[in-house]
């Protein structure tokens, strides 16, 4: 299947890239940027709407400053997305490379396992894993890796199957290069572009999934504000305090959008005719 990608005017891309960078910077500098202590409560100052003096984005159920919590909340999606996506790529690529390269029965078994894994509703997998392991940054990352790695196995394995019959691989084998070397030095570089493209788009999915996990109460930590948890808390106050659910949700949306804009652009540049249906989403 061939598909031409969208190419957005560079201005959008620049803006999106700028937004992504800003997100990273805010995530790293969060403790110094927040105007107030994100956990400081003031029970007499609850549910103040945005633009209240001293609280640009209002206060929440316990009178905490929403803006400060939003800033402090950038950290979790940033860390989770980076860690979960790189680990999934690492595992997925390794397994896919092995499976495709070795072939035969091993390949069949691995691919059936992967199919089963992909048939499992992945949000359920994440939920189950967090439930088993308990909440916490590491466990959420593990749960996301567990639910995402199989995507890369499929992608990589398919490409390896065709690559290993190509001339440059065959000739390398002929002159006695070891299998490991062929896999790492010859095949791996050839598949990295498509992996990079999928991984960039997966960042958006992972950020949204982390938010859904927090939203379902299976998030990173209760002491650390996260966007998903803020959204979940705010949902009960939809009618009386709209800003509580709106603001963190908008933050998730904007970051995912920016990442996707950049991801799409990278894809267009690297491989204008890449396959589109490689990912589940």
């Amino acid at each position: 299947m061939t598909a031409r990608r969208f190419s957005l005017p560079p201005l959008y891309v620049t803006l999106a890239l700028g937004f992504c960078l800003a997100f990273l910077v805010v995530g790293i500098l969060a403790p110094w940027l927040a105007p107030l202590d994100p956990n400081a409560q003031s029970l007499l100052n609850r549910l103040r709407p945005p633009l209240t003096e001293g609280h640009l984005l209002g206060t929440d159920v316990l009178g905490r400053d929403v803006l400060s919590r939003l800033i402090a909340g950038t950290r979790v999606p940033m860390v989770v997305a980076t860690a979960a996506v790189s680990l999934s790529v690492l595992i997925g690529v390794a397994v896919g490379l092995f499976s495709g390269y070795v072939g035969g029965l091993v390949d069949t078994v691995i691919m059936r396992l992967t199919d089963a894994w992909l048939a499992f509703p992945f949000i359920l997998l994440a939920i189950a894993f967090v439930a088993v392991l308990g909440p916490g940054l590491t466990n959420v990352i593990i749960a996301l890796v567990v639910s995402q790695w199989a995507v890369y196995v499929r992608l990589v394995r398919g490409q390896v199957l065709s690559l290993k019959e190509r001339e440059f691989v065959l000739s390398a084998r002929m002159i006695g290069v070891s299998h490991l070397r062929i896999a790492v030095q010859h095949i791996l570089p050839a598949i990295m572009p498509s992996v990079t493209i999928v991984a960039t788009l997966e960042i958006g999915i992972v950020i949204a999934t982390e938010a859904s996990l927090s939203f379902l109460g299976l998030g990173v930590s209760a002491s650390q504000p996260t966007w998903g948890a803020m959204l979940a808390e705010g949902r009960a106050y939809l009618a009386s305090a709209w800003w509580l659910a709106t603001i963190p949700g908008a933050a998730v949306f904007l970051v995912v959008l920016a990442v996707n804009v950049v991801g799409n652009h990278i894809r267009d540049m690297v491989d204008p005719r890449s396959a589109g249906a490689a990912t589940k989403a």
Partner: peptide, 29 residues
Amino acid sequence: VRQVDFVLAQAVAGFLADAGLKVELALVE
């Protein structure tokens, strides 16, 4: 704390923090 009592627990943690105790909240399923 469980999700249902989360708001109350955050208030409790707030009072304890005011009294000088360092509190880590853990939200448990």
